[in-house]
Design a protein around this nucleic acid. Sequence first.
DNA 1: TTAGGGTTAG
Length: 685
Amino acid sequence: MYARCGKVEDALKVFDESSQRGVNDVVSWNSIVGAYVQSGEVNRALKMFGRMNSGGFGLQADVVSLVNILPACGSIKAAMLGKQVHCYAFRSCLFEDVFVGNAIVDMYAKCGMMREAKKAFDIMDDKDVVSWNAMVTAYSQSGSFDDMMHLFEEMKEKKIESNVVTWSAVIAGYAQRGLGVEALDVFRRMQLSRAAPNMITLVSLLSACATLGALLVGKETHAHAIRCLMNNRNDRGEDLTLNNALIDMYAKCGNVSDARIIFQSLSLKEMNVVSWTVMIGGCAQFGDANEAMGLFSQMLHGTTRPNAYTISCALMACSRLGALRSGKEIHAYVMRNCNGNGFESVMLYVANCLIDMYSKCGNVDAAQIVFDNILNKNDVSWTALMTGYGMHGRGEEALQVFDGMQKAGLVPDEITFLVVLYACSHSGMVERGIKYFNTMQRDYGVAPMSKHYACMVDLLGRAGRLDEVVELIKGMPMKASPIVWVSLLSACRIYANVELGEYAAERLLELDSKYDGTYTLLSNIYANAGRWKDVSRIRLLMRKMGIKKRPGCSWVQGEKGTASFFVGDRSHPQSEQIYELLADLIQRITIIGYVPETSFSLHDVDEEEKKGLLYEHSEKLALAYAILTSTPGAPIRITKNLRFCGDCHNAFIFISMIVDHEIIVRDSSRFHHFRKGTCSCRGYW
DNA sequence: TTAGGGTTAG
């Protein structure tokens, strides 16, 4: 009785008393073991089970004992013990019991031993729907989708009716793989069948909607869930899981405000670590990364501890903001808490996020140190570091990482080659980029995809080899994607090629007429060529299409937090000093040879931005602010949401000659390190 | 006895 009410200690007392009198039977032993399993004390349960079977008590485990202990083995992946229990079940013929058989299949699956699971499943004489579900679930969770669907079809052939568990497992399997369309399709088929979805089905479905960004179906599912809630009394845990899945779905579908409404409807007591994680992750990726950081610090002041998932999301926010100081603080937090708090098993994930964070916050050397300290590096670790060197224009080092990766026995795949080409492109290593592109299929069996072509267009385009770009695009075995045309258009902007630019813009508008960058780039090309009529034609077209240029924004992490600037921004309290210093800097660099490139003053199509003069660009304001507030000699880190303006880039080179700071700028595609009149991009900006 | 929510590299 005590055991069933969850009072393990009381149950144990009774058990011990009976023990002394020698009257405990299998039933009482089972109750104790079951109570430990229920309360999550798996190791104690396993110990008790071991004592029971030690032979000293003259007892033998029965069906209930096995059904108790097998899931416990699975939950802590105690494969050896699980195998022993299986042997015992075999010897005692208890494995013929369908409950025991199901538990054996499930145990092997949870231990990741799929072959053994399938073997145990195959020799079961009387399978029930639970047996099939155990196997379908096993395949679903191990990512073996073909096997999962095969079994699912076999169920249909054998006329075993799928129940809600089967359907939910199949939906979840697809969702986890990111196959949202297939998951939704299964849900439609489920609706046609007799099985009614429950909360778990809906949660799996929301996860599919989240990966797909399918807001409409997500909302439908939300409505389903409300009906489901009204019809059934659910426990609070189930409600919270649903709310967490809803927050995640809304955020990933780009509707952060609805996600926030659900998040805020939860009381601090109700929410758990997942609620915080999905909200922080949602803001970090799809909303305001500053809000994500705010939420994270709010969380640290509360009672819910972040785990590795939360940390990864917070690091993503730092990466996006270029918030090196916050990133370092989180790194320190991880170091303080990595022992015994559930971080071990997912440390690799966190470490890979740290590599990304340090690279994107401008400190790729720190990323290298994190990388060096990882004992069991995986392909993501190598790729993240390579990307880091690539975006800092340190192509040689990126290629050394590529060599190291292969020496470590990892096989390059399409992502590896994308990163290699990207690194070559950002370091001006044109010939080597071409060589890798030409050999990736021949030597490594990786066929170039559209994104690799886009990278090559970028590589050749930045180098001004526009004729070769045209040939490359003509020879593409697939339709050119929008990124291909954007890369070409950008190259036409740099090399002032109006005709080709127009052609690229036309192709791009056919594919995606809503992308504001197309209009801006084309307008810049016309402005540069002095074709003012065309400039106003583009402006009119934008108005007609309801397209607004995203405003350029630059920010800098100062002593007292982050300061951000738009073009012509005068909202900062130190605005007057900032403009004064900027005017002084411009005057001084003009003396040593800076000439404003006025074509960039027409960079902005937006009316408000047009008013801004060249020296009011957001990156120049951010730099002036940073110089004003930093200690001499300290590096200055600026982040810009769009592409670095060419005139600003030129001005920064001159300014770096006259100030005692290294200036590190991250724009939408890469880093620029300015030191004493040079930039790390060597013209490939 | 089977099923459910959150994380990394382009």
